[in-house]
Computed example of a mutant assay.
Amino acid sequence: MWCCAREGDRGSTPDGRKAGPGVRTAARSQVVVITGATGGVGRAVAREYARRAWGVALLARGSTGLEATAEEVRAAGCEALPVEVDVADEEQVSDAAEQVEQRLGPIDVWVNAAFTSVFAPFSQIAPEEFRRVVEVDLLGFVHGTRAALERMRPRDRGTIVQVGSALAYRGVPLQSAYCASKHAVQGFHESLRCELLHDRSGVRVTMVQLPAVNTPQFSWVLSRLPKHPQPLPPMFQPEVAARAVVHAADHPRRREYWCGGSTVATLIANALAPGVLDRYLARNGFAAQQTDAVSDPDRTANLWVPADGRSGHDHGARGVFDEESNTRSWQLWASQRHGALALAAIGAAALATAAVRQRKR
């Protein structure tokens, strides 16, 4: 499953079909809802849709980040609707969806990207902390999906994108609550997709499995590690992930997209030799998820309150690992051109066959 993303896809419907007469196009008045829209991948996705002139609804905790993101969307000439929401609360999510449809119009795309985490060995994570991660990272996706479906199914159209991770298939040490939630989202996604196919629904659901991304989360998650947490390298900038998410929303007939060569390598290795990967991560996974810098005991944690709630600081889309992060992905580049590359491969094979036959003569 090769992930690809194209910028500036206009004049098409959310499922990738060319827009015909009477069909709203991305260049006009389509509406997207993004949870976790104030930082990281969600923030980058909001910028991508702003470039397309969509109406953008931003759902997240923390007024500082929400207003900053909304200003970015408005600066692009688009309408933004920031709504303070804790996605773990189903009623808040449902009320927010209602506000979106009243203010911006029918929801065309819903992107579930909100999350939180705890970096610590499982034995050091309190039960209420583990529960909170699951409530945000799993039930937040469930609540968002339910709110979207309740409005999309009567219209028999719309797309829901679940922002996943390679960790939806491959658990790693120090992130047990997050990995458990992503595994559960994967199962939820597959089950729901089967139900929609059974009903022959026009509503589409797809999932994007991301690599390690340079987001602010590593500076604001609750951490009990001695050193500052970091993503398992190689890292990618959130804009790479955002392009993959938007492309998935444009082409949701595929059940799942893999973004980044490291995601592909990880999932293949886990399928072929999971036990070997267990031992590799046991030896290397602790050190690989920490920098050399000593962790700040007074750092802001967003598990219970938004990261900007105490500091009043807008964290933006990118984290502190700019120098180590890739702005492009070879796998993403190749997948963008898979049709042309396939034709080139067929042509090369044909030329090689013709050359062999010529020599035999």
Rank of each mutant, 00 (worst) to 15 (best):
R155M: 07
V83D: 02
M152R: 01
T69E: 11
Q175F: 14
L197G: 04
V163F: 06
E71K: 14
L196W: 09
G171H: 09
Q99P: 00
L167S: 13
V185H: 11
A96D: 06
V93S: 12
M152P: 00
R170H: 10
V172K: 10
R103A: 15
F188I: 05
A70I: 13
V109W: 03
T206W: 02
R200S: 15
M152G: 03
Y169P: 00
K182R: 05
V100R: 02
G144V: 04
C194Y: 09
H183Q: 05
A97W: 06
S191N: 15
Q162W: 01
S165K: 02
V111M: 11
L138A: 12
D137S: 08
V203C: 03
T159Y: 01
R157Q: 15
P106Q: 08
V93Y: 08
L174H: 01
L196Q: 09
G202M: 11
A147C: 11
A180S: 13
I125F: 13
P173Q: 11
L138H: 06
F130I: 00
A180R: 04
T69F: 11
R151E: 12
A76E: 15
Q124P: 00
P154V: 13
A177Q: 07
L196K: 12
S201E: 07
A114N: 06
Q99R: 15
Q175P: 01
G171D: 05
M152C: 06
R151L: 10
E91C: 03
M207G: 02
F122G: 00
S117W: 01
A76N: 06
